[in-house]
Design a protein around this nucleic acid. Structure first.
Lengths: 122, 122
DNA sequence: ACGGTATATTCCCATATGGGAATATGTCAA
DNA sequence: TTGACATATTCCCATATGGGAATATACCGT
């Protein structure tokens, strides 16, 4: 079956580094295709193709102005990704407190050395 | 060139829906491969392959226990994704305040109707 | 209508996939 | 050692990719 298509959802769309660059570049501003291509050092057809994917999943919005088309990032479409990642927030917080607790325990009873030195132990 | 490999970074790894399911399932708990397969209704070889990808990018950790291998989600590896998405937070906030402001403006001067009714306008 | 600019699409191709089936590796128990 | 269980890997295949090059489409000014 191969991988799911990039047009199926935002997760697949942002898997491509160039598309993430485009999204960052178009955050808050509106730019024509040519300018995007020049700014990011990409070929125009390549940019058009990436924009197509991003538009299909709603990550960018397009507006026509004369002969050029202005694109901008639709930040709202990134929220689901943010929320999905936030699902794991409590777990990495747990991990951090565990790491911190262990570090403090070692500092309390072990010899007072730097972490870089202690990491070689065991 | 084709798409970047799934083992290259976390963004590519989470593009696959099954892998996101696995990550959610293994959040906070530690489970052997067989149990993961059964819980998610996947074939064992398939789970092993997905776990391989997830392990290669650091999204899961593995520990051997007798003849079985216990996996768990490494939540810390999801933080970069969360932070990348958070980059756009100020923009979707802007959009929300714009929407809210417009809604309030309409409520102030238009007839006092519900949003659901007003959304049909113009 | 014409030429020119701005984008989008198509074609071709090397490559990366994920699933299924079969098989290999590893570990325990007797 | 042998056998059974738990995972990992390999092979094969249909499919989706992204880039480059060439081409099509759309809109503008004259």
């Amino acid at each position: 079956m191969a991988r799911a298509s990039t047009t199926s959802d935002a997760f697949n769309a942002i898997a491509e580094p160039r598309r993430r660059e485009i999204l960052s570049y178009l955050a808050g501003i509106e730019r024509p295709v040519g300018e995007i291509a020049e700014a990011l050092g990409l070929e125009q057809p390549s940019v058009s193709k990436h924009l197509r994917v991003l538009k299909d999943v709603g990550l960018v919005r397009m507006r026509c102005q004369g002969r050029q088309k202005l694109y901008r990032t639709n930040a709202e479409a990134i929220r689901p990704l943010h929320q999905w990642a936030a699902t794991f927030e409590r777990y990495w917080q747990h991990q951090l407190t565990r790491v911190k607790a262990r570090a403090e325990a070692m500092a309390r009873q072990g010899s007072p050395q730097l972490d870089s030195a202690k990491s070689k132990e065991k």
